[in-house]
Amino acid sequence: MAEYKTTIGIEVHAQLKTVTKLFCGCPASFGEEANTNVCSICLGLPGVLPSLNKKAVELTVKAGLALNCEIHTRSIFARKNYFYPDLPKGYQITQYRFPIATGGKISLEGREIRIKRVHLEEESAKSIHEKDKSLIDYNRSGVPLIEIVTEPDIDSPDMAVAYLKTLQKILQFENISDAVMARAEFRCEPNISVSKEKGILGTRTEVKNLNSFKAVKKSLLSEIRRQTETLEKGKTVEQATIHYSEETQKTWVARIKEESSDYRYFPEPDLPPLLISQTWIDEIKTTVGELPVQKKEKYVELGLNEKDAKTISSSTTTSRLFEK
């Protein structure tokens, strides 16, 4: 079998650790009784308008800084228009062309994974499915999310998991998100393609509904196998949404993307441009710490060997001394 190169990019959505929702003062807490944390705004009633949560902005900036991004002093919210019962306004307020942060990177085992963007958006409601009907709970509607997107710099399922584990640790360490995967506070959507030809990427598929790191690794391995087999047979890989089954431990095509949804993005008229002053960015920067594993990566880059780097970075005292 010829050598196939794997290319993976990952999109993560994480719920921010704020007291209230993104555009209203409803509590953003988890696990309450249905529809008890809902107001006219997060229900999208006629006549309501969004009011932006300052803490959510702060945490997004912090995430951008922790990921070495450029923070934009001016960013814009946009409407992503689509219909679904868990989306009360018929559009999601998100960011499109002008996100809060872009151009960052994470160092991982000597490799660099570039962060394309970090932006702020609102969560949709939660639905439970019964036999003949679906039930919708809007407690989750409007909770603040950050979306973190990498460039396609990851080249193996193991690296994908390492990236996710590191990202999760950063978000938790910086108090940006509790990032508990089981509570759907940390959702990963990798996209993956394989290619035999050097410099040319294959058609990518998007894997959704992953509930654990194990599922991430297994689903990506399965998808590599599936795509490789398809190509070996002389067929083409179709752009699709892929689901993974924990029972069969296999991936399957859930939906072919013949027609990508037309989200008709346009700037949100109810929210003027978000201006973030350099002073505020500098203030937030002072609250950004560094994970031991990140320090270690930095030291290795500076020339230390792995063992020494690991020892020095593991304690705040030694690392402070070293950095002097």
Binding site: R79, P88, K89, G90, Y91, F266
Partner: peptide, 8 residues
């Protein structure tokens, strides 16, 4: 078209 999408 966007503002009236909520009427479902």
């Amino acid at each position: 078209s966007s503002n009236l999408a909520r009427y479902d």
